[in-house]
Nucleic acid binder design. Structure first.
Length: 129
DNA sequence: TCGATGACCTCTA
DNA sequence: ATAGAGGCCATCG
């Protein structure tokens, strides 16, 4: 019997309609900043959580970049797949659904994904933002 | 209110 | 290459 790593609730989460109540304005500002930066990542290239946080004016808060993506509504159509962890590594666990989807989306843009990693040369700092 | 958690990072060994 | 420590802090139960 194959054990699932994620809970059933987690798997059903994307289907759930329930959303959390609106956040405070300053929190929304941080989220907006991060989302905006992610939108600016060019097609066929990637950036890292740390770099995204920096570009959004939140140096040292790579985690918050991850959360912002986790909380991002589907309707924004964010290119979330262009955000990877340090060294070009896909942050999701190897066999996870999300990992596979991210790799697939990246390959669809011509990004070579091998061994759960993208070529570090494709990583952009987003300094010029 | 509070402790645990996490789509992370950097440094050290 | 891998492992641990410390830092970060919004979110969640």
């Amino acid at each position: 019997m194959r054990r699932r790593k994620t809970s059933l609730a987690a798997l059903l989460q994307p289907l759930a309609v329930k959303r959390r109540p609106p956040r405070a304005p300053e929190e929304n500002a941080a989220l907006d900043a991060i989302w905006q930066v992610v939108c600016a990542i060019p097609r066929g290239r990637v950036s890292t959580y740390g770099a995204v946080a920096r570009a959004a004016g939140l140096p040292g808060r790579a985690r918050q970049a991850g959360y912002a993506l986790r909380l991002a509504p589907r309707s924004l159509n964010l290119p979330w797949h262009r955000v990877v962890a340090a060294g070009g590594r896909i942050a999701f666990p190897r066999a996870s659904r999300a990992h596979l989807e991210q790799a697939q989306r990246l390959r669809a843009e011509g990004v070579r994904v091998s061994n759960g990693r993208v070529p570090p040369a494709l990583i952009t700092d987003l300094k010029e933002l």
